[in-house]
Each structure stands twice: as C-alpha cells, then as structure tokens.
Computed example of a mutant assay.
Amino acid sequence: MPNSGRARIPGSILLVDDDAGDRLLIQNILKSCNSELGLHYVEDGEEALSFLKQQGAYADAPRPHLVLLDLNLPRKDGSEVLAEIRADPDLAGLPVIILSTSSAPSDIRKSYSLHANAFVSKPGDLNQLRQAIQNLYAFWFGTARLPGP
C-alpha cells in the first residue's frame, strides 16, 4: 500500500490465529503497510486472553491498539474470547475485528451481538486478502482514532 503522503502511525496489533500460513501472510501484508507496526500473535483463545490480561508468560506484553481475531481457535474459540474481552472493564473498549474464513450469517450475527467492531471474511485469493488487510490497516490506523494501549 503506498504511503499517500501521510505519516506512518505507530501502533500495535494482536493477531489471534492458529493457522501459521495465514499468520505469516497477514504479518507480511501489515509490515508492508507500516514497517514500524508492532505485530504480536498468539495461536489460541487462552493465549489471547493471557496476552491481553498480561498474565503468566505475557506479564510484560504490551496492550495492543487493535485485535484481529479468528473464530475457529483451539482451547477457546473466538466468540468466547470476544465475550470475555467485552466483559472485562479493562479490555471492553479495545477494538476487535473478527477475521475469519467463515461467512456464515450465524457467525456474523453472533460476532456483532458480542460487540465485534467489524467482521471480515478472509478471501481465498491472495490479492483479495492483501487488499482486505490493507483496507483494515488504512481505516483503523489512518482514519479511525484508536484508544491508547
């Protein structure tokens, strides 16, 4: 994504996805948007909550500006993670984007009922995925105002 004359905004994202290939693709796309972006990832729902609550191995983890959350996760699925984030007063205001291979209307409805900020279905095509991630980055780090970590 070209830098359209705007200063690159520092920020950080927690990517919660158990698919190593998807994580690597998304990481590379985000780094092409902003090489200074703090990008952290975990592979399951339990780790996501530990990271966000700065518990155990994640005691020194930074608070991200944005969470990209897959629905189909081991140990605790994305819907359960989202519900716990929204129930925690320290995390409730954290923007959470569902980024899932699902496009099922029931998953979309459930995610929004749990107060996801957006639901994005991962496109199967690499160029479409690149465009979707670049659009997410441009909106959340260029247009929207995010709370500090």
Rank of each mutant, 00 (worst) to 15 (best):
Phe51Met: 08
Val81Trp: 08
Gln55Cys: 09
Ala83Gln: 13
Leu49Asp: 09
Leu69Val: 06
His40Ser: 12
Ala59Thr: 13
Leu91His: 14
Leu49Ala: 05
Arg75Trp: 00
Pro74Trp: 01
Ala57Gln: 14
Asp88Arg: 10
Ser79Gln: 13
Leu71Met: 02
Leu94Gly: 12
Ala87Asp: 13
Glu46Asp: 07
Asp88Cys: 11
Val42Pro: 05
Ala83Gly: 02
Leu52Tyr: 11
Glu84Val: 00
Leu52Thr: 10
Arg86Asn: 10
Ile85Met: 08
Ala57Pro: 09
Gly38Trp: 01
Ala57Met: 11
Arg63Phe: 02
Leu37Tyr: 06
Tyr58Glu: 09
Leu91Phe: 11
Tyr58Gly: 07
His40Pro: 01
Ala61Glu: 08
Gln55Ile: 13
Ser50Asn: 08
Gly45Phe: 04
Pro62Trp: 00
Leu52Ser: 10
Leu73Tyr: 01
Ala57Thr: 15
Pro89Ala: 13
Ala87Asn: 13
Ala83Asp: 08
Pro89Glu: 14
Leu94Arg: 14
Gln55Asp: 13
Gly38Ala: 11
Gly56Ala: 15
Tyr41Val: 00
Glu43Ala: 15
Asp60Ser: 13
Ile85Thr: 10
Tyr41Trp: 12
Gly78Arg: 08
Ser50Val: 01
Leu37Lys: 05
Pro64Ala: 07
Lys76Pro: 00
Ala57Val: 14
Gly38Tyr: 01
Asp70Ile: 02
Gln55Gly: 03
Glu80Ser: 11
Tyr58Phe: 15
Leu71Ala: 04
Asp70Glu: 05
Asp70Met: 03
Leu69Gln: 02
